[in-house]
Design a protein around this nucleic acid. Sequence first.
DNA 1: GCCCTGACTGCTA
DNA 2: TTAGCAGCCAGGG
Length: 112
Amino acid sequence: MRDESFYAAVYRVVREVPIGQVATYGDIATILGHPRNARQVGWALAALRAAPDHTDVPWHRIINAQGRISHRGDTWRAEAQAMRLVAEGVELDDAGRIALAKHRWAPLNRRH
DNA sequence: GCCCTGACTGCTA
DNA sequence: TTAGCAGCCAGGG
């Protein structure tokens, strides 16, 4: 995937996440071959939220390793994201976190 | 080419 | 479980 920018690579992987499942920034980074590049994954997704309705990338299915959606400032957006997930069948625990152990995407059968 | 920023992660307290 | 700290890497000015 050297012909694509890091952005494009991230978007490609995120699109592979099926409805009802979620993945962490670290997961995406690892799939791309950069286990410690989670920040850039989030950054690539941040570029999408400028026009969430003009992309086919399910950015709302990407959460942090704690199963939470802790944005910097826009907490309301985090809740909106959580609601989108719930609408797709993802469950939240009593603390309002995504049930990672239950819905975490396991792309073990895919390769590029 | 240098410096700063950032939707993160893992460890320790 | 939550809070603080340091490390990593790519893009933008």
